[in-house]
Every structure is written in C-alpha cells, then in structure tokens.
Amino acid sequence: MIRGWLAVAVFAGLVAMLAFGLTRDPSRVSSPLIGLPVPAFQAERLASADEHFDSTALRGEWSLLNVWASWCTTCLEEHELLMRLSQQLALYGINHRDTRDEARNWLQVYGNPYRASAFDEHGEVGIELGVYKVPETFLLDPDGVIRYKHVGALDEEAYQEQILARIREGRP
C-alpha cells in the first residue's frame, strides 16, 4: 500500500516541522538589513537640536546601535547591561518616538550609556532600520555593516553568544 505509507511519511514530516515550530517564536521577524551597510540617515541629536547624528560616521570600530525610548518599560530591563557595555564598546542610541524632555530626564535618572543618541521623534529613522519592537539593538562592524540584530531586551546570554562571539570572530 504505497499510498498509505506515503501518507504516513508526509504526516511524519509535518509533525517534525511542527515540533521544530514549537521551539521558535513566530512573532520574531528576521531583518533584511543584516550583511548590509547601516542605512544612511541624518537626525538631530537628543542632546541638542543643532548637532547632527550621522549614521555613516559609525565606522572604524565595532559598535552597538540601540533603539530605546523613555516610555519603553522593557528598555529598563537591559539598561544595566548597556551601562556596563558602554565601558567596553561604542554604544549609540536612537531615541524612538519620544519627547526630548522625557528622554533626557530618563537618561538623567537611569544613567546615559550612549556616546550619542539620535532623536527620532516621528519614527522616521526607525523605519529606515526596520524597527518594529522597541528595544532593538544592532551590531555594526568597523566597516559600518550590520552584523546582527537583537529584538527585545538584550541579556547577558545574547550578548555573549551573539554579539561578543561575532566581534571575536571578526577580529583578525
């Protein structure tokens, strides 16, 4: 009964795939920007409207580009880690859909891990980066190419396994 066993085989494949599916988060969206240079954008700095934040300047060293906001509660979960990382890595921020006052105040209260933050009041920069869920963190190599994107709060494990591993690999 070839037809019968064929049905059994197809079904077994289906079950295997569904089992794999159980280990994945279906709402996570992979980014098409990985492996490409960080999109060119210019924005005001959070610190001052007169100064500009230029994404093309993010080269020469490994850096992290972190999308954050004062209204974002998940951002607090990763904040401590970011503060620590700011000692070792170039860390830049994109303040997403926020107001200047609240964002600055937030940095004052919790500490500012960023060398500089772009002020993305209307989410325009967010669209350029394909941001859909704050916080998001991008890893840029010394050539300004996006190597990895983390969605949600960054934790020690993700930092070690995804970010640090890539930096070590990338170094000659």
């Binding site: 969206v29 992979s30 980014s31 098409p32 920007l33 669209i127 394909g130 859909y132």
Partner: peptide
C-alpha cells in the same frame, strides 16, 4: 518597505 522590513 521590503528593503527595510523584509518579506514579512
């Protein structure tokens, strides 16, 4: 949009 957010 596809260039920014992918096929999704």
């Amino acid at each position: 949009l596809q260039a920014r957010y992918g096929d999704f």
